[in-house]
Amino acid sequence: MSECPRHTAPEPVFAEPWHAQVFAVTVALNEAGLFDWPDWAARFSATLKRNGLDRELNGGDDYFTAWLETLEALLTEQGSTATGDISHLRDKWEEAYLTTPHGQPVRLTKG
C-alpha cells in the first residue's frame, strides 16, 4: 500500500515565526498562572466559532490570528495590558522596522 503523498511531505511545526511566538507567550503565561488551560480553550473556541461564521478558517494564519485576538482580549480583560498600549507599541515596532537598515537587528527604543 502506498501512502497519499499529499499528507507525507514534512511540514514545519509553525508555519510563521509569529505563530511560534504567540504560542510560546500563551504557554508561558499559563504556566505563570495568569489563566488555566480549560479557560483558555473555552475562550479560544468561542473566537474560532465567531470568526468561522462568515467564512471557513484554515488551520494556519486564520487559526493563529484567532489565537492572538483571544490572548489580547483576555489580557486586556485581566488588566495585564491595555488596548492602547498594544497599538502604541505595535506602531513603535513598525517604526523600528522601517527605520532600521536592512541586515541590522531591529530594536525598540524605549517608549
Binding site: 510563521e16 498594544i86 522596522y97 522601517l98
Partner: peptide, 22 residues
C-alpha cells in the same frame, strides 16, 4: 528592494507589542 528591515505582517507586530509589554 529593501533598504530597511523587512516589515513583518500586522499580527507579528502585535505579538511583538504584547511580548514587549509583558
Amino acid at each position: 528592494d529593501h533598504p530597511h528591515a523587512l516589515l513583518p505582517p500586522d499580527p507579528a507586530l502585535r505579538v511583538k507589542a504584547l511580548e514587549t509589554i509583558l
